[in-house]
């Protein structure tokens, strides 16, 4: 199987920059997978799990809002934040999840969109973290 080049870039750093066999990313309109010779493609990214396969081994990372560009066997994922599964701070994510849930329960006097976004981010992190630790 041919290789594609994956880069995951956040404002702080370049998290991943390497050749992989396959990438699966959480797009706005659903998850999408990228293999070699994919047509040029552009998609928004929502908080979720990004998987990539290297020599038959799958690795996970959590990504937040952003977008991805695919062209010439190169996948560039530009997101606000991203962490590899091993690096996720589970405690922090759990606390963020609780906070967001509480805020949503109040219903009034809060910025619902923001609370929901926070909830989605926390859930994405926990999901990905769970992949390697269970």
């Amino acid at each position: 199987m041919g290789k594609i080049f994956l880069e995951v870039i956040t404002p702080d750093k370049v998290l991943i920059s390497r050749e992989v066999d396959m990438v699966v990313a959480p797009g706005i309109e659903g998850e999408f997978g990228i293999l070699e010779d994919h047509v040029a493609f552009l998609s928004g990214i929502v908080p979720g799990e990004l998987r990539y396969m290297i020599d038959g081994k799958v690795e996970y990372c959590a990504v937040m809002e952003g977008f991805a560009e695919v062209s010439n066997n190169r996948v560039s994922v530009l997101v606000d934040a991203a962490e590899k599964a091993e690096e996720i701070d589970i405690e922090r994510a759990k606390k963020a999840l609780e906070r967001a849930q509480k805020r949503l329960e109040q219903k009034e006097g809060i910025d619902i969109a923001r609370a929901e976004a926070a909830l989605r981010r926390a859930m994405a992190r926990l999901k990905v973290a769970g992949r390697v630790r269970d």
């Binding site: 797009g27 309109e29 552009l42 998609s43 010439n72």
Partner: peptide, 23 residues
Amino acid sequence: ESKGGEYICEPRPEELLVQLLPK
């Protein structure tokens, strides 16, 4: 041209732009 020219966009370019401009 070598950059592949046309993209497939998800969602449509107009909607994507709405997301990208504030960024």
